[in-house]
Simulated assay, not measured.
Amino acid sequence: MLAGTSALPERSVSVTQRERGRGRRRSQSESSTPQEIRSTTRVYNIKTSEDRDDPKIIADGQGGSGLYTEIGKKARDLLYKDYQTDQKFTLTTTSPTGVAITSAGTKKGELFFADVNTQLKNKNVTTDIKWTDSNLFTTITVDEPAPVLKAIFSFRVPDQMSGKIELQYLHEYAGISSSIGLTANPVVNFSGVLGTNVLALGTDISFDTKTRNFTKCNTGLSFSNVDLIASLALVDPCFHMGPIASQPMRTPSGTQHAIDPLTMVKARVNNVGMASAVIQHEWRPKSLFTISGEVDTKSIDKSPKVGLALALKP
């Protein structure tokens, strides 16, 4: 990944993932035959029942190219999701009327952070309201105001300049998203993906109408089949065509394995000696208990960091 002055430095990621299958019952022959994929790009195995049920990522002839934000998402989840060194508790409650309330609390050292998220569904309209210590985020999503379209309106209180409206279009061979800020001199964003659920090429561009400059110019490529997904992203190649001075490159590698249908372990290590591990157990449907840890292998005299997370969904 190539980066500009405000983005991450160039990365080459090697990922190994074995069958997850968390929360699903599989045959003995399938669970006893783990598969391994290695590459210098973001690569991971998606040959699990859970992944096959997701129309956005399966490669069995259904689904389309998806949106630009989906390029590399599964690899990022493998390398970064659930890795934490804090204590977190999450409780989700739902009602028959379509209201879901999620409360979360996180303890970081001596500090405690809390947020509450409320989701209301009424026919094809979904409203998400999230309250944090100092902000109120609201997102209103309308599914199919016209065929194959999705409209999203979002804003943040008390920021009066945060209003934004977005339109998404999903087709078998294309995924397009365009947004504009609701200000006098808005930032306009456009992203598009062309291809199929096997091979897709996309771009993500932002233009500031006030300065009349492009503020973002990204390009992504993804390849998918029943065994793996690989993606490559170039960040801001439009602005930096020459040599780039950057921080020392960090290259993480990760692996994931299902101990049983309800328990998953994964680990990662980078080239500077930081090693992390996660074990997650689904002790009841959609309720997870997670233990994670991180250690500096080049400074073993330092105490390892440990994180705990409990997510309850009755």
Rank of each mutant, 00 (worst) to 15 (best):
Q247E: 15
V235Y: 00
A309Q: 12
S29T: 09
K216N: 11
A277N: 05
V265H: 05
A277T: 12
D128R: 11
G98R: 05
N124P: 02
G72N: 11
E10M: 12
A75N: 01
S162C: 12
V278R: 00
L194D: 00
T106N: 13
V306N: 01
R212F: 12
H257V: 11
T183M: 02
S231Y: 02
T219I: 14
L182M: 12
A184I: 04
H257Q: 10
I259Y: 09
T5F: 14
T203E: 04
L182Y: 01
M241T: 15
I229F: 03
F112H: 08
R38G: 04
P9Y: 10
Y83P: 00
H281I: 06
I176N: 01
T215L: 11
T97E: 15
R284Y: 06
S292A: 14
Q168W: 04
R22F: 02
A146N: 12
Q160Y: 15
T203H: 03
R76G: 07
N197R: 09
G63H: 07
G66L: 03
L111T: 10
T251F: 11
H240A: 14
A184Q: 09
K150F: 03
E144H: 13
V278S: 01
G23S: 06
L234K: 08
G307Q: 08
D260I: 08
I129Q: 03
G181K: 01
Q62S: 15
G105R: 06
A275N: 04
K81D: 13
V278T: 02
N197Y: 03
R25Q: 15
I165P: 02
V188S: 02
A275I: 13
R284M: 10
G109D: 07
I152M: 08
L199Y: 15
A275E: 03
I101G: 00
V188C: 07
S191H: 05
S231N: 11
P34I: 04
W283Q: 05
E19S: 10
L111A: 11
I46H: 01
E50F: 08
K130Q: 14
V226Y: 15
S246N: 14
S14V: 10
G254Q: 03
G181F: 00
S39W: 01
H257I: 13
